[in-house]
Amino acid sequence: MKAAEFKYERPGSLAEAFALLEDGDLDATPLAGGQSLVPMMNFRLAQPGMLVDLSALDEIKGISGDGGGLRIGAMTRYVDLAASALVAERAPLMAMALPHIAHAAIRNRGTIGGSVALADPAAEMPALLLALDAEITVQSSAGTKTHAAADFFLGMYETALQSGELVTAITVPAPAPDRRFAFYELARRHGDYAMAGVAVAASGAPGGVCSDYRVAFFSVSDRALRATAAEAALDGKVPMDGAEAAIAALGEIPFAGDLNAATATKQHLSGVVLKRALERV
């Protein structure tokens, strides 16, 4: 299919972008990397009146140190994250997960902000941000707001983002020196959306007890979400020692099946990926 007719603008500043996005008559939609939006337009499932291409907005691109943490512009591409020594050092969880996010051609265009704003329940990035205690900065002509990742993802393709707002940056706090991470997903083919996946963060010495766990699942429910009961079950334990109790606590998740895995299979595989991630923490 061919996309329905639309107008196209490529503003040079955020202010220009907001002006276009806030003009209700234009029916404008922001275009980040286009790896989800463009296929949806080609199926005519999305028919925006105008695409506002954000690719010229250098002010929301790039990776910089932010204290001991990271500030990542929303229009930073996956390929840039994967190539960044700063990301590898300060958000090793992201570096672990990036090779599993789709394929090279998609990572060359897909952006972190696009993934966050879309909130695909099967995407890795929202879960990574949950496990990293990241913050999401959104802006509009009215000003700037910051959401904790834990408050941002509300449902299937549903976020705290309001009409006229853009995700402009992701900030990742400096990890504690003993902060450790693991990532595990089960995808039928490398690069596919996973049947189930999890990102784990915890603080403690290797082989020793850990605290302050973050257990964030993706592709098991209608959104990326933290398994807080599992986190509690793990607290103060050596990761593998707490695995059984953590898996038993996964009933709190509102699992939702898809074509590759019914709800019960999602639940089973969530336990498996959690166990395997904990082995790797």
């Binding site: 590759n260 019914a262 299979t265």
Partner: peptide, 13 residues
Amino acid sequence: MTPERVLKALGTV
């Protein structure tokens, strides 16, 4: 022979 069908064959799900 999908993963889910193998799991069903094993009686896991």
